[in-house]
Design a protein around this nucleic acid. Structure first.
Length: 934
RNA sequence: GCCGGGAUGGCGAAACUGGCAGACGCAGCGGACUUAAAAUCCGCAGACCCGAAAGGGUUGUGGGGGUUCGAUUCCCCCUCCCGGCACCA
């Protein structure tokens, strides 16, 4: 073993040297970053490029610790022999002995691509090509890519490469969503500044991405935690403040103790923090900055109808989240005896038509009127306070819908404006203050909840809409209330004065008009969506550019003073509010209006602000503005956005909002950020999502080191359709690796460079069959790209094509009968079809075929020829009564009559219909003949 | 409760408009090469039954019904799994 290794070392010493140089060059940038940062952090410095171990060039830094060395093993030899590239791992796995090992070859190309940054750059606007903006969601720099990233980016990269080959001007950028809490937690744990932790992670992950061979235009890279980016967050904030879209108010907000900060509604999942799934969120009363996303609620909702190329799932989730409901506000005057004249209760209802059936008013326990109504009844007050506690506990536990309904009668009455009836006012524990007006009219006859409540307290149940089900005779022993409440709307009004006999919809319209005319009500729309609270009591985020002047009040930082830099060397703890409060040089400022003393806002922005507009900056990361509008208008909307479904509400609703705001500011012309959205499935192993705590994580680095980037990427595309969850199986990667080895040998054992013309219609039957298969494969893969994106079947089609070619005697190097130019054609087309999925191998083989690898991506995608793909004969199934009884091969040109005749003449068919009556014969051309007998 | 998505061999999956269920791959089995193994190459393979074999039969896409010459595919009912929303008035 060692013997062999030594011999190899000797043989290929010069190659090792050459590749080592390449590798050094390739990764020197990233190395420099990592080494500098690591040195500053006082971490163990990554090993230097060492001629004896040329592969070791970077370290994986995670949670502030060097957790592993990333090795990019250089080649021990590189050859075109039948075994492929010699094994090159530093410590070879004995199981890999003799196996196709693409790693050195991949590193050679990684080096070539690194030294040619223009390779994947987009063309200028006037290049004459049609634009195509393909985008994958940018990662949080946690320290290392996981398989979910690899899957996401492999899909996007395949699409980008395919579009390039189809002649498009492709923009395919990448960046870092790099503000956020994990950096602070790492800082506390390791006493490391968040900036250094974050930047070293970025450097390490960038090396991973480059090693995986993703075709990004790195000249457009965006790093959200750097001032050249977050300056524009601040600029936008001020613009929004000026437009009244950013405002500050004191309110109850979601507070996570683990994060020691406020959370947006969208960041609360099942009553818990989205980052700490077992930590219940508390409600705290705090003064916070909000973005008025509700101003756009209607447009955000209506826009979903036009996003036809977004998954229905995502659109539904957003519709649910926005929660629009149409109804009316109606004022019930307080009965004079109850309080000061003129006081009223405004209720929100979607069923104004049922108002004649309102037999109580229900107030939320926290409704401001409640204390007035029961001020001199300490007994009731304490009951109401219990209800408040009960509600907030249930809300935290996510069990609001399950608590038993109860309430108290306040002793007061209100007047129904439609019939002047006295209606008792109750406080109900099922009424929420933050929806509608926090007060409802209770109609037990036509609402499940009101019905349940009325049953318990024996309140009157009045029917005002004729229940449809009552038109049928009740079953024996069935009480009338069994069919109540009737919540349908497909019926007629009763017991409702002049509205009797009207249809529900008609009554709603007329009653709302009546209320409006008489000044006690109006049509209204209520949303579940709330304004976006963006203040965070944390350090590692964009400082909110506002000042509190002792004289002038709230004052925005003038534009020419931006950015408000985030101070470094800040003591970070999770206690005692924002760490910035404890930095006097930051807090103390001068008021730009009066010159007096001002205090800076010490909260930072939600990191979802960063990701709300990053994709615009990719188009033109310039210094003097957030982005160049002309350039953005050329690229937008994003043609294809790809990412995980976990952002269906958070990021995807915020960034839609931001797009609409920027459009209204005149910065862009598009209404929506992305024309098409694709949400890929999760990566699962052993039945669960990969996670550190379950210990079922597969590291992309390990896979790349062992099987190469192509195999790793191709496996994520092959194992399942991209929109479904992917069940990771190590053995599956091995299979893909075998396939790529076969591809390699198919070309490398006999790379044909001739390109003389040949007549494809005059080929021998065997070669004709291969040619047919080739064109069927071209069609299949082209269809997959333009249709359902089932790349698993694209890869399967490539495997079938290869199986067809692999040992075909026609293509044999010495004894083959097909023209050499035909084999050259097959090889070239195979490489082109593989190019979107396996960039390294396709580049290697392309150059092996004497082509310029630098132009592979600009080479036109293979053209499908229907005539060459067509079969000349087809196997037709013979059925008796729908059961297969035989098959027969006939020319594709056979007519229906010929086919029928041929089938009925078949021995097996004859035997089967012997002595029976043939009822009919169904002939499906090119498919089957079914003889129906009795 | 409402909405969206699923359920196909030992496993991942395919079948796109109703027309041969299980392509492709993994695992498995057999053969070739090898002193041997690995790698590689060639082949077999849903389950059950009959047959020495060639071959033949039955059955089979979560369960039940329906439409049809024919259903994984269309319709009705049901079960289970994943995801979202939920006393939203």
């Amino acid at each position: 073993m060692t013997e062999i290794k030594k011999a190899r070392d000797k043989k290929s010493e010069s190659l090792v040297q050459e590749i080592t140089e390449n590798v050094k060059e390739v990764f020197s940038d990233a190395m420099a970053d990592v080494r500098t940062v690591a040195a500053e952090l006082g971490l163990r410095p990554p090993p230097s490029p060492d001629p004896n171990e040329p592969g070791k060039i970077a370290s994986v830094v995670s949670d502030g610790e060097v957790v592993g060395e990333r090795t990019f093993a250089a080649a021990e030899s590189s050859s075109n022999d039948s075994q492929g590239f010699a094994n090159a791992a530093v410590d070879p796995d004995p199981r890999d002995e003799g196996r196709f090992s693409p790693v050195p070859m991949e590193e050679k190309w990684a080096a070539a691509w690194q030294s040619n940054p223009a390779l994947y750059a987009s063309d200028p606007q006037d290049s004459g090509r049609k634009k195509y903006y393909v985008l994958e969601m940018l990662p949080y720099p946690s320290g290392a890519l996981h398989m979910g990233h690899v899957r996401n980016y492999s899909i996007g990269d395949a699409l980008a490469r395919y579009m390039w080959m189809n002649g498009y001007n492709v923009l395919h950028p990448m960046g870092w969503d790099s503000f956020g809490l994990p950096a602070e937690n790492a800082a506390i744990k390791n006493n490391t500044p968040p900036k250094k932790w974050t930047l070293s992670n970025i450097a390490a992950m960038k090396v991973q991405m480059k090693r995986l061979g993703f075709a990004y235009d790195w000249s457009k890279e965006v790093t959200t935690c750097l001032p050249d980016y977050y300056k524009w967050n601040q600029w936008f904030f001020i613009k929004m403040f000026e437009r009244g879209l950013a405002y500050r108010k004191k309110s109850k907000v979601n507070w996570c103790n683990e994060c020691a900060t406020v959370l947006a509604n969208e960041q609360v999942v099942g009553g818990c923090c989205w980052r700490h799934e077992t930590t219940l969120v508390e409600q705290r009363e705090l003064a916070q900055w909000f973005f008025r996303i509700t101003d756009y609620a209607d447009e955000l909702l209506n826009g979903l109808d036009k996003l036809e190329a977004w998954p229905e799932k995502v659109r539904t989730m957003q519709r649910n989240w926005i929660g629009r409901s149409e109804g009316a506000l109606v004022d019930f005057k307080l009965d004079a005896a109850a309080g000061p004249a003129g006081d009223k209760i405004t209720v929100f209802t979607t069923r104004i038509d049922t108002i004649f059936g309102a037999t109580s008013i229900q107030l939320a326990p926290e409704h401001p009127l409640v204390t007035d109504l029961i001020a001199n009844n300490p007994d009731l007050l304490s009951k109401v306070e219990d209800m408040m506690r009960e509600q907030s506990a249930a809300k935290q536990a996510g069990e609001l819908g399950t608590i038993e309904k109860h309430g108290v009668f306040t002793g007061a009455y209100a007047l129904n404006p439609f019939n002047n009836e006295k209606v008792p006012i109750w406080v109900g524990n099922y009424i929420l203050l933050d929806y509608g007006t926090g007060a409802i009219m209770s109609v037990p006859g036509h609402d499940e909840r009101d019905y349940e409540f009325a049953q318990k307290y024996k309140l009157e149940i009045r029917i005002v809409v004729l229940p449809r089900r009552q038109e049928e005779p009740p079953e024996e022993g069935q009480a009338e209330h069994d069919v109540l409440p009737y919540t349908g709307t497909d019926s007629l009004m009763i017991n409702s004065g002049e509205y009797n006999g009207l249809a529900v919809a008609e009554a709603q319209k007329k009653m709302t008009e009546f209320a409006e005319k008489n000044g006690f009500g109006k049509a209204t729309i209520t949303f579940r969506l709330k304004d976006w609270g963006i203040s965070r009591q944390r350090y590692w985020g964009t400082p909110i550019p506002m000042l509190y002047c002792d004289q002038c009040g709230v004052v925005p930082v003038p534009e020419d003073q931006l950015p408000v830099l985030l101070p470094e060397n800040v003591d970070i703890t999770l206690a005692g509010g924002s760490p910035l409060q404890r930095v006097p040089e930051f807090v103390n400022a001068t008021c730009p209006k009066c010159g007096g003393h001002a205090r800076r806002e010490t909260d930072t922005m939600d990191t979802f602000v960063d990701s709300s507009w990053y994709f615009y900056r990719y188009t033109s990361p310039v210094a003097d503005k957030p982005f160049d509008s002309d350039v953005a208008n050329y690229w937008f909307p994003i043609d294809q956005y790809i990412g995980g479904v976990e952002h269906a509400i958070l990021h995807l609703i915020y960034s839609r909002f931001w797009t609409k705001v920027m459009r209204d500011m005149g910065l862009i012309k598009n209404d929506e950020p992305a024309k098409r959205l694709f949400t890929q499935g999760m990566v699962i192993k052993d039945g669960a999502k990969m996670s550190k705590s379950l210990g079922n994580v597969v590291s992309p680095d390990d896979m790349v080191a062992r099987y190469g980037a192509d195999s790793t990427r191709l496996y994520t595309l092959f194992a399942a359709p991209p929109d479904r969850d992917l069940d990771w199986q190590d053995a599956g990667v091995e299979g893909i690796s075998r396939f790529l080895g076969r591809v390699f040998r198919f070309v490398s054992q006999d790379p044909v460079k001739e390109s003389a013309a040949y007549d494809a219609t005059q080929l021998s039957p065997g070669a004709r069959k291969i040619s047919r298969k080739l064109h069927q494969t071209i069609k299949k893969i082209t269809d997959d790209f333009s249709g359902r994106w089932h790349f698993n079947t694209s890869v399967a089609a490539l495997m079938e094509l290869l199986n067809e070619c692999y040992s075909a005697p026609e293509l044999d190097a010495t004894s083959g009968t097909a023209p050499r130019a035909f084999k050259a054609d097959i090889q070239r087309n195979f490489v082109l079809l593989l190019a979107p999925f396996a960039p390294y191998l396709s580049h290697e083989l392309w150059s092996m075929l004497g082509e310029d690898a630098g132009t592979l991506l600009r080479h036109p995608w293979p053209k499908f020829d229907a005539a060459l793909a067509a079969e000349n004969e087809v196997e037709v199934v013979l059925q008796i009564n729908g059961r297969v009884r035989g098959r027969v091969t006939i020319p594709i040109t056979a007519t229906e009559a010929e086919l029928r005749e041929r089938a009925l003449a078949d021995e097996k068919v004859k035997a089967a219909i012997e002595g029976k009556e043939v009822v009919k014969v169904i002939v499906v051309p090119k498919k089957l003949v079914n003889v129906v007998v009795r």
